[in-house]
Simulated scan of single mutants.
Amino acid sequence: MSGQHQRTRGRSLRRIGGAALALLLGLGAVALLILFLNSRDEAGVQPAGGAAAVPGTAFDAPERYLDGRQTRLLARGNVYLVAAGAPPALTALREELSGPPDPVLEEAGQAVVLVRRAGVDGVVALAAGHRLVTDDPADPRLERFAAHWLGRGAG
Rank of each mutant, 00 (worst) to 15 (best):
L66M: 08
A89T: 05
P137C: 03
G151K: 03
L114S: 03
A146T: 13
G129Q: 05
A58N: 07
R9V: 10
R9Q: 12
G155P: 05
G44S: 15
R131V: 11
R76K: 05
L32R: 09
N38C: 06
G18M: 08
E96N: 08
N38H: 13
G49A: 01
G10S: 13
V124F: 06
D121P: 12
L66V: 10
E42W: 13
G119E: 04
R76W: 00
A86R: 15
V45M: 15
G3R: 14
R7N: 12
G129F: 01
V104T: 15
L33P: 05
L13E: 14
G3T: 11
T57Y: 08
L81E: 07
S2D: 13
A127C: 11
V54W: 03
A22C: 14
Y80D: 02
A22K: 10
L33H: 04
S2W: 10
L37I: 14
L74Q: 04
V123Y: 03
V123I: 04
R64I: 10
L66I: 11
A43G: 09
S12Y: 10
D135Q: 09
G153S: 09
P88A: 15
P137F: 01
P101K: 08
A138I: 06
P103I: 04
A75Y: 00
W149H: 15
D102W: 06
T71E: 08
G99Y: 02
L37R: 15
A31I: 05
E95R: 12
L126K: 00
R14W: 07
V30G: 08
A53W: 07
G44R: 10
E106W: 09
G122E: 09
Y65R: 03
